[in-house]
């Protein structure tokens, strides 16, 4: 089963000199995780996203739409990246999701991907 791991993070902790160090450590964590998956033969993909300030959102309301400068949800945590991994169960997906580095406040949402029919 495929699961999407959505990484929502407080971007502000990566600001400044201290922040840059944190970012370096976080990226190393991601690299290590990707290597583990590769080593175990777990199929995965994923991307890092640019900050929420670069987002543009198309807001729909019953057929009409408007553009909004910013991410969909105005929260302290922003969607900063995602993975899609192929594992046997939610339990496995959760185990992996817990290993995603989130140095500050944040949340990793784990969602099953709707399977392709037939």
């Amino acid at each position: 089963m495929q699961y999407m791991l959505l990484i929502n993070e407080d971007e502000s902790i990566y600001e400044g000199e201290e922040g840059a160090k944190k970012m370096e450590a976080t990226l190393a964590g991601h690299m290590a995780l990707a290597q583990k998956w590769a080593g175990k033969g777990i199929a995965f993909s994923g991307e890092r996203l640019k900050p929420g300030s670069t987002a543009t959102t198309i807001k729909w309301d019953n057929g009409s739409h408007a553009l909004h400068d910013g991410p969909f949800a105005e929260t302290h945590e922003e969607l900063g990246g995602f993975y899609i991994i192929d594992v046997d169960s939610l339990d496995d997906a959760l185990e992996w999701a817990k290993q995603i580095p989130v140095p500050g406040k944040g949340a990793v949402e784990v969602r099953p991907v709707w399977p392709m029919e037939g």
Binding site: D88, S89, L90, D92
Partner: peptide, 14 residues
Amino acid sequence: REAGIAFELPERRH
């Protein structure tokens, strides 16, 4: 059913 919760007895540590 939809989230694919494992049907195996979890490992003891869980």
